[in-house]
Computed example of a mutant assay.
Amino acid sequence: MSDVAVTGAGRTHRRSELREFLMSRRARVSPAEAGLPDGGARRRTPGLRREEVAVLAGVGASWYQWLEQGRDISVSPQVLDAVARVLRLSNAERRHLYVLAGLNPPTPEVAPEKRDMCDGLRRLIDTWMPYPAHIMDRYYNCVLYNDAAAMVLGMRPDLTWNCLVDYFTNPLYRLRAESWERNARTVVAQFRAACSADPGDEGLQEVLARVRAASDEFGRLWEERNIEDAGQLRKELEHPLVGLLCLESTALKVPARPDLTIVLHTPLDEANSAAKLEWLASPEGRRGAMYPVAG
Rank of each mutant, 00 (worst) to 15 (best):
R26D: 06
R26L: 08
A27L: 08
A27K: 12
R28C: 14
V29W: 04
V29I: 15
P31G: 05
P31W: 04
E33G: 00
A34K: 07
A34H: 08
G35A: 05
G35W: 05
G35N: 06
L36F: 02
L36M: 01
D38S: 08
D38V: 01
G39R: 02
G40R: 01
G40V: 01
R42G: 14
R43N: 13
R43A: 09
R44P: 14
R44W: 06
P46R: 04
P46N: 08
P46S: 09
G47R: 04
G47E: 08
G47S: 05
R50H: 12
E52W: 07
E52P: 15
A57I: 05
G58R: 02
V59S: 02
A61F: 09
A61K: 15
W63T: 13
Y64C: 12
Q65C: 14
W66T: 05
W66N: 12
L67M: 15
E68K: 14
E68S: 13
Q69K: 03
Q69R: 08
G70L: 08
G70A: 07
R71F: 10
D72Y: 10
I73Y: 10
I73S: 10
S74T: 15
S74C: 11
S76K: 06
P77S: 11
P77W: 09
L80S: 09
D81I: 02
V83W: 11
A84D: 04
R85K: 10
V86Q: 06
V86Y: 07
R88S: 11
R88V: 08
L89F: 03
L89W: 01
N91Q: 13
A92L: 02
A92V: 07
E93W: 01
H96F: 02
Y98V: 04
V99T: 12
V99G: 01
A101Q: 12
N104P: 10
N104L: 14
P105R: 03
P105E: 14
P105I: 03
P105M: 05
P105S: 12
P106S: 09
P108H: 00
A111C: 03
P112H: 02
P112S: 03
E113N: 02
E113I: 11
K114H: 13
M117T: 12
M117F: 13
D119F: 09
G120K: 00
R123I: 08
L124P: 10
L124Y: 04
I125W: 03
D126E: 14
T127I: 02
T127Q: 10
M129V: 02
M129D: 11
